[in-house]
């Protein structure tokens, strides 16, 4: 069966004198082609969740199934990791090779593909993130944003069905951040890859079709961005604020003005209002 399933998943870490609960009783299903946002502050368990999805961590209780394969079984780990790629937060610490094109070839090579197929995928992935010209550069000469795009391309080149991104933008400048988010949107719409974007920044997750809010290791809220961001009180209680756009929409709706269109930016909203 296709999709990602978490069945009653808990994860505890042993510390010096006690157990620390990182996640408790998480249940959800993600279908192929979805764009999911996972929102939470540090310590909410979101990075643990990312590592559970591709078997870097094993659940203490419960099961994590990727296309029906259990991450607990070592034989299927390689297949799971081919299906589900992860981009990590720190662009510097996930680039392995001294040359950009080798970096992107690293994953496909490990899958045992032929050099010509690898070559094809490297070119394809570089093109998606718009980094063709950097092909023969050394990663340390790139900016943080460029490094993160290379990291994204290197996972794309494995052609996963599911793309998990753990805080991919938290170390980037606003411009690179927008570029990365734009790439993700395209990858979801045109390549039909499933996107699972994990972030502490509510604005990062405005493209998601469904949000899961984590707080202290449990699912705190779930729903469309409009539903989740529309409940300012509940979000605010755990230290999160909806993006400004949704705050404005809520303010207008409280005054009895219905906003039906889907807006992506504040200028778009203002534009629409002025045209009415």
């Amino acid at each position: 069966m296709d999709g990602i399933q978490l069945i009653d998943v808990s994860k505890e870490f042993k510390t010096a004198d006690s157990y620390k609960v990182a996640l408790s009783s998480i249940n959800f299903t993600i279908h192929e082609g979805e764009y999911i946002g996972i929102l939470g502050l540090n310590q909410s368990g979101k990075s643990t969740l990312a590592r559970l999805l591709n078997g870097l961590l094993k659940p203490t209780r419960g099961r994590v199934l990727i296309n029906g394969m259990d991450t607990d079984s070592p034989q299927q780990l390689k297949e799971i990791r081919q299906l589900l790629g992860i981009v990590f937060p720190n662009p510097d610490n996930q680039l392995i090779c001294p040359i950009v094109e080798e970096e992107i070839a690293f994953g496909p090579e490990n899958l045992g593909l032929s050099p010509s197929e690898v070559h094809k995928r490297v070119s394809w992935a570089l093109e998606i993130v718009g980094m063709q010209e950097m092909r023969n550069h050394a990663p340390h000469l790139l900016s943080g944003g460029q490094k993160q795009k290379v990291a994204l391309a290197s996972v794309l080149a494995m052609e996963p069905s599911y793309l998990v991104l753990d805080e991919p933008t938290s170390m980037l400048d606003p411009l690179s951040r927008r570029e990365v988010l734009e790439h993700l949107r395209m990858i979801n719409q045109e390549n039909h890859m499933t996107i699972i974007l994990i972030s502490h920044n509510p604005e990062d997750l405005m493209d998601a079709k469904r949000l899961i809010v984590l707080n202290e290791g449990s699912i705190y809220m779930q729903g469309t961005p409009k539903e989740v961001y529309g409940d300012m009180g509940k979000l605010g209680a755990v230290g999160l604020n909806p993006p400004g756009l949704y705050q404005l929409i809520q303010q207008l709706e409280e005054e009895g003005y219905r906003i039906d269109d889907n807006f992506e930016t504040i200028p778009q909203l203002v534009e629409k209002i002025c045209q009415k």
């Binding site: 400004g244 930016t265 203002v270």
Partner: peptide, 9 residues
């Protein structure tokens, strides 16, 4: 797009 929300308005 990098302005604070209220200034964007």
């Amino acid at each position: 797009l990098e302005l604070p929300d209220y200034l964007q308005v």
